[in-house]
Amino acid sequence: MVTDMDEPQIRDADGEDAPRRRRRRRLPRWLVWTGRLLFVVVAVSVLTPLVVGWRVWYEARQDDRPRSDAIIVLGAAQYDGRPSPYFEARLRHAYSLYRDGVAPKIVTVGGKQEGDRVTEAAAGRAFLVRLGAPAADVVAVETGRDTLQSMIAVGGAYRERGWDSGVVVTDPWHSLRSNKMAQDNGIEAVSSPTRSGPSVRTRDTQFHSIVRETGGYLYYVLLGRSRHTM
């Protein structure tokens, strides 16, 4: 009778048992896990910006107008008291929301850049008053050279007045980051971005704005800092 002991062993060309040779070719466990970890890191590095970019794009298309304590207009460049086209588009949209009864107050935001005589907030307030908003209904928060500094200041103004909710008016692609910063400073924020002005005129401008805001949002979430101005 032939037993397992009597069965001939299959040997390769080097005279070694085939099963042993197969075992020797298996990758070390540490190398397998390193490869898996590298795959996860690469996948996250690629997918995260894509997901955030989609969120920037999606938020830009929202237009929320619930009854709120105030409309918050984020500042942009101004020239000796005259709002830039970007800023003017935001201010006109905020005034339209005010006239529609979305909120009884408008908050303009923004400090001075180097060499300026007038703050963005003051320029915005004066423009809104010229449009027809009562001066008593426009609050100028003249602090901040970027979105984060300004939202911190607005959060303080909200606490002083006992306000909770706000509709943020800015460029469409800026909405996601602005809302996040407002919420982090105690404001129940939604956005109603402007649909006019230079920020929405061309697809090339829109694409570059989405890329920039994707980086700005990730920078803020990861480091708690503002990378871009308003």
Rank of each mutant, 00 (worst) to 15 (best):
L222G: 00
G215C: 11
P19Q: 03
D204V: 15
A60N: 05
G162S: 07
D184T: 12
G144K: 08
G144V: 02
G101L: 06
V154A: 09
R177F: 01
R227M: 12
S199P: 01
W33M: 11
Y217E: 08
V44H: 01
D100Y: 01
L131C: 02
V169H: 01
W33S: 13
P104K: 01
R65A: 13
S199R: 02
A123I: 11
Q206F: 11
V51Q: 02
S199D: 07
A153D: 04
D204R: 12
E160L: 13
R145P: 08
R195K: 12
L74C: 09
L131F: 08
Q206D: 12
R145G: 03
W173T: 11
A18T: 15
A76Y: 09
Y86V: 15
N179H: 00
A153S: 07
S199I: 05
G155E: 05
S178T: 14
M5S: 14
P28M: 04
R117Y: 00
I71E: 01
S45G: 14
D4L: 14
W57C: 08
D63Y: 14
I210Q: 06
G224T: 10
L97N: 02
P172F: 04
R11Y: 04
A121K: 05
L176M: 10
Y220M: 06
T205L: 07
A189Y: 00
V138A: 00
A13L: 14
E142Y: 02
A60R: 08
S45M: 15
V52M: 02
G156A: 11
F39W: 08
L27V: 15
Y79E: 09
L50I: 14
S178E: 05
L128H: 03
A123W: 05
A13K: 11
A77Q: 12
E88V: 14
G166F: 10
V44L: 11
S226H: 06
R55V: 05
S191P: 07
L47K: 03
G166C: 10
R177D: 08
V138K: 03
V200K: 00
Y58N: 13
R227F: 06
L218F: 04
T214P: 10
P83L: 07
K112T: 05
A94K: 04
A153G: 10
G132E: 07
V141F: 00
V44C: 08
V73P: 10
A94W: 03
I10K: 09
H93L: 06
G166D: 06
